[in-house]
Amino acid sequence: MGKKYPVQVKVNGKEKFAEVEPRLLLAHLLRDEFNLTGTHIGCDTSQCGACTVMLDGRAVKSCTVLALQADGAEITTVEGLGSKEELHPVQQGFWEKHGLQCGFCTPGVMMAAAGLLQENVNPTEEEIRDALDGVICRCTGYQFIVEAVQHAAELIREQQKQTSSLENVTAGGDE
């Protein structure tokens, strides 16, 4: 057993600490140390994207990041997107538009989609397909996934309109 080093990260809004070997991958830290098994490991070679998480606001494949590189970072896993009571728009889109089949790749696809929609709430189909290019789904032809992301984008835009209208009313604007 090699020397271990401290790592402190904020995962899904909670501070987490671990002592890790320098070779430990972020995917394994999340799964094995923090028991966040929604981050799937499909290939361990960065080809499949099943391990995609948000790292400081960017979608990354967690099998390509050493745990030590994430020290001090803010991480969101699929478990942190939403809750059973209040689904994230991406989760709602996948639910309503049947954007999954076996479900193995789904956490990675959702995180890649969330990364896209954080940057662009009105993506074209081509932009969605480009953003999801690094995540492999072996069960489907991606059409339902694309439709789920398009629906999630609609839900986000609706939420933004409602928030904007509410802010306008509370600020004394048009009622």
Rank of each mutant, 00 (worst) to 15 (best):
D71W: 06
I156A: 01
A114C: 04
A114Y: 09
C102D: 05
L66H: 13
I75Y: 11
Q160G: 09
C51R: 09
A73Y: 13
H40S: 04
Q159N: 15
M54S: 07
D133Q: 10
A50V: 08
T170F: 13
K61P: 11
Q150C: 00
G57K: 05
A59E: 02
G72K: 07
F17V: 13
C48D: 07
T140D: 09
I145R: 11
M1D: 01
P123V: 04
N168R: 15
L66V: 08
T45V: 15
H40T: 12
M54D: 03
V169G: 01
V60F: 00
A18H: 13
R23H: 15
E147A: 07
N122W: 04
C102Y: 01
V146D: 01
E127M: 10
E79R: 03
P22L: 07
E147G: 10
P6M: 08
A67L: 10
G103A: 07
F34D: 02
Q8W: 13
V11P: 00
V121C: 04
C137F: 10
S164H: 04
N12D: 15
S83C: 10
N35C: 14
S164P: 08
K16I: 03
N35M: 12
N12G: 12
D174T: 15
A131T: 05
H98T: 08
P22C: 00
W95K: 09
A153S: 00
V121F: 10
A153Q: 07
E74N: 14
E167A: 15
A73I: 11
T106S: 03
M1Y: 12
N120I: 08
L26F: 00
A131P: 06
V149C: 06
N35T: 14
D130W: 02
H40E: 05
G134S: 10
K161R: 13
K16S: 13
T76N: 00
E15K: 14
C48F: 12
G172N: 14
M1F: 12
K61R: 13
K61W: 11
L29W: 00
C63K: 07
G72R: 08
E127V: 05
W95P: 04
E158W: 02
S83L: 11
L81C: 10
K16Y: 00
L132K: 04
L117W: 05
L116V: 02
V11R: 05
L81V: 02
L26G: 02
V11F: 01
Q159R: 15
P6E: 10
R58C: 11
L66D: 12
R138V: 09
C43T: 14
